[in-house]
């Protein structure tokens, strides 16, 4: 049974007609054709599918689309104003040359973007305690440095 759901994605009002139980992840990827949000485990364990829903960090593989009704969703594609004017987290990711295969990284950036909202000056411990995403390539040390850099970029921007 399909139903219509309305929500905002990356600032644009949109609607889809899908099964209400369909995970937000597959709506984003396959219905809206935004491929930056990744599928890793399907069970809210790896964080590859992380997005923001009304400003909250959400693992979209385990978030039924019906819960998105009327909400505002941000994915990696909507994080920066433009490809030239990057969100501090994405800029820091470039400065620190963080990634390897890259597959887990959009999820980490979404988590990092949320973290620097909450911690203006995050320590290693803040980062370690608050992000549980999985990266197999072992980019962890660079993720930690990049999040700290992003926090200071954010401060100097504002």
């Amino acid at each position: 049974m399909k139903s219509k759901i309305n929500f905002t994605i990356n600032g644009k009002q949109t609607s889809v007609e899908v099964n209400l139980e369909m995970p937000l992840l597959w709506v984003i990827r396959d219905e809206l054709n935004l491929k930056g949000t990744k599928f890793g485990c399907g069970r809210a364990m790896c964080g590859a599918c992380s997005v923001h829903v009304d400003g909250e960090l959400v693992r979209s593989c385990s978030f039924a689309i019906k819960r998105a009704q009327g909400k505002s969703i941000t994915t990696i594609e909507g994080l920066s104003e433009s490809e030239e004017n990057l969100h501090p987290i994405q800029q820091a990711w470039i400065d620190e040359n963080v990634l390897q295969c890259g597959y887990c990284q959009t999820g980490f950036m979404m988590a990092g973007a949320k973290l620097i909202e909450e911690f203006s000056d995050p320590t290693d411990e803040d980062i370690k305690a608050n992000i549980s995403n999985i990266c197999r390539c072992g980019t962890h040390p660079r993720i930690i440095s990049a999040i700290k850099r992003a926090a200071s970029l954010k401060k100097s921007n504002s």
């Binding site: 491929k35 930056g36 949000t37 990744k38 599928f39 994915t75 990696i76 594609e77 920066s80 490809e83 990057l86 994405q90 990711w93 470039i94 040359n97 990634l99 890259g102 597959y103 990284q105 959009t106 950036m109």
Partner: peptide
Amino acid sequence: FRRSDLKDKVLGKPIYAID
């Protein structure tokens, strides 16, 4: 040098088979 695939991956470009 920084990686040649860095920016595409930071922007979440569709470069993997799943995309």
